[in-house]
Amino acid sequence: MSSTKPKPSRFYGVISALTFIMIYVPLATLVVFSFRAPTGWTFDWYTKIFSDQQIIEALGMSFFVGTVSTAISIVLGTAAALTLERTRFKGRGAFDILTHIPIIMPETVMGLSLLIWFVFLGVTLGSFSMIVAHVTFTLSYVIITVRTRLQGMDPQMEEAARDLGASPWQTFWKVTFPLVRPGIVSGGLLAFTLSFDDFLVTFFTAGAGSDTLPMKIYSMTKYGVSPEINALSTLMLVLTLVGVLVIGAREKLSSPR
């Protein structure tokens, strides 16, 4: 595009700068103060949180719930994405809408509806109920990511494999899977990040004594500010950022097809 683009006025620049300051200064302060000792700098807050049994348990719980729900989402989501992109059937449109509901539904509503349902069924709230709840929203993101990848893939590829004598099963493992694998991996990373980060749905479905990291941070913040929370939050920020950067880098690598 060679259209002439005007330089935005200085006023717009100032407002934009202010907006970014509003977004980033609190986060930056948090990170800086996580290394701050009354005099000078320290890693004490980090050693402190790593010796806190409850925090370690919460971190472990976050990883456990994230890993299991990601694994379930990947299997169910990839299968559903294949059906949605490669077959025609009655009710396909309705199923398509169904897969998008968890994305538009307020998280509060999803959390409390699952809470009612679990209590109704007599399910004990804990890691199991959290995994079920997390899969319910991460599944949608895996389906969408894998579908996008499948849309970018010529369906003639699969026909070519069939034409060359591959059975449906061989076609999937030799052609479809290697080609959609980047989508599956991105979808999985997305699912893990969302699960790891989730607060609201977890808030309703965690039950007593099974905190995830965001839950732990929330309950700690209730008692006011502390350098330990700063350190823990910084850790969490770094973990999510790594996830996002990896997804971003993968997309950048695979986009100029």
Partner: peptide
Amino acid sequence: NMVFQRYALFPH
């Protein structure tokens, strides 16, 4: 066997 319009060569 078929020669496809967009060739459908396996990129991997």
